[in-house]
Nucleic acid binder design. Structure first.
Length: 442
DNA sequence: CATGTACCTG
DNA sequence: CAGGTACATG
């Protein structure tokens, strides 16, 4: 027998954590060797190796496969994004007049560029009368910079022939403007979300721990006063380029930056990152408010919500995703998402807790989860890949509590009980915060 | 029976 | 992350 089969016999009996504990019988037929080999398998240093992996699949054997898996995953995600955005997912290679060759423009810039192109074109033609004036469009775009109805540059003969072409171009121009305006308006609303969050972070004092009543081996955590406001992490405060108000760098992000890098390449890296964010944002914006089902942006939002609530109620889900038709399928998909989020969260917690045990960490108090910690980095990467969201302090507290719960349980040997996680889940499920109001759609 | 949760798998 | 399974709950 290998550990896989041992674990398999346990599954289903840890299901709902509201169920009473005391299922010693499930250890029947499980030898001490099996239990310990299970523990060894669980405590591997290799990321993503699930603890129920069978013995045959050693950690060493898994490394290359993992790498391949990540690459495949990455490729998959990229292709999905591409398919959602059409050609706009990739920066477009164009050569605008008066600029360097092979300048790479991203969708947002592309729109702007097209707009300028059209504006120039139409200002050159401002003397020619165009028949069948579209009064509605005229009213909508009664901006002084918009094309006038005359164009002296074009000879009379050509004028008639070019008429339909001009109209087509006008329509295209309007479409571009519309796109641009829509994009701007929506990005403003997205910015509002992040700004609102920032304000709330600023207003709210850190939450203190009033919930600890049944901690087995460590005392109530002392609330540590946090700095009033993490100005460094908030680009809203320090940012110079106002065109990218969404970005809020986390301190954890810095960890990813190699220490030895020329300032030039750093600048380039920052520039590229900003570009990526612009792309992300326009894509985020354009796909929002879709009524056809859950989009990638809904997933992104759900992940951010996880920072506040690990066990969202259906009601909360409905409030936050009211822009989609709530069929049974959609509901269960959302629930499934959060289930997957929790799974990842708890797996990480267990992994890091076991690691701490192996490192002979003396007591639970020594285990902390700061923004600079590896655990936070992993979590942030999963739920907030672009690091453009300021993770609430409360989430770090919850992570720390979870980590300590796992650590203590493992130290006390509770993990030999197949239902040992149930108690932890019960504790963590009580630590949900309210989702900030800006997540709720009206 | 419908819903929610955990676990496993691909 | 989604599909499937087992189980609990109302």
């Amino acid at each position: 027998t290998h550990t896989g089969s041992v674990i398999a016999s346990f599954t289903g009996d840890c299901a709902a954590f509201s169920r009473d504990s005391g299922s010693d019988l499930f250890l029947e037929g499980c030898t001490a060797e099996q239990v310990s080999s299970f523990q060894l398998a669980s405590s591997g240093d290799v990321p993503d190796l699930y603890y129920s992996q069978s013995e045959e699949s050693s950690n060493v054997m898994h490394l290359p496969l993992q790498t391949l898996g990540r690459e495949a995953k990455r490729a998959r995600v990229e292709s999905i994004i591409k398919s959602m955005n059409g050609s706009e997912a990739n920066p477009q290679e164009i050569i605008p007049e008066g600029t360097n060759k092979n300048t790479t423009l991203y969708p947002y810039q592309m729109e702007m560029f097209k707009m300028h192109q059209h504006q120039n074109q139409y200002q050159r033609c401002k003397q020619v009368q165009i028949k069948n004036e579209d009064t509605m469009v005229k009213n909508l775009y009664a901006s002084p910079k918009l094309p006038q109805n005359t164009c002296m540059d074009i000879p009379h003969g050509v004028q008639q022939a070019n008429h339909s072409q001009q109209n087509a171009e006008r329509i295209k121009y309007m479409t571009d403007i519309l796109k641009c305006e829509l994009s701007k308006a929506l990005s403003t609303s997205v910015d509002t979300i992040f700004k609102a969050q920032t304000k709330q972070e600023r207003k709210k004092p850190p939450l203190y721990h009033q919930y600890y009543d049944s901690s087995p081996s460590y005392t109530q955590m002392t609330p540590v006063p946090l700095p009033a406001f993490q100005t460094e992490a908030l680009s809203l405060v320090v940012r110079k380029d106002k065109s990218v108000p969404i970005s809020q760098y986390c301190t954890g992000d810095q960890e990813l930056t190699p220490t030895k890098k020329s300032s030039k390449s750093l600048q380039k890296r920052d520039f590229e990152r900003e570009q990526r964010k612009i792309t992300d944002k326009s894509w985020y914006v354009l796909k929002e408010r879709s009524k056809e089902g859950l989009t990638t942006n809904h997933l992104k939002k759900a992940k951010l919500m996880f920072f506040y609530t690990r066990y969202p109620s259906s009601h909360v889900l409905k409030m936050c995703f009211s822009d989609v038709q709530f069929t049974r399928c959609i509901t269960s998909q959302l629930i499934k998402w959060f289930s997957n989020f929790r799974e990842f969260f708890y797996i990480q917690m267990e992994k890091f807790a076991r690691h701490a045990v192996l490192q002979r960490v003396t007591d639970a108090e020594a285990l902390t989860v700061g923004r600079e910690s590896e655990l936070f980095r992993v979590l942030n990467l999963h739920y907030n890949k672009t690091s453009d969201f300021q993770v609430p302090d409360r989430f770090l507290e919850v992570a720390e509590i979870t980590l300590r719960e796992f650590y203590v349980a493992i130290c006390l040997g509770k993990d030999q009980d197949p239902a040992w996680k149930k108690a932890i889940y019960r504790v963590i499920s009580k630590l949900d915060s309210d989702v900030p109001t800006h997540f709720i759609l009206t």
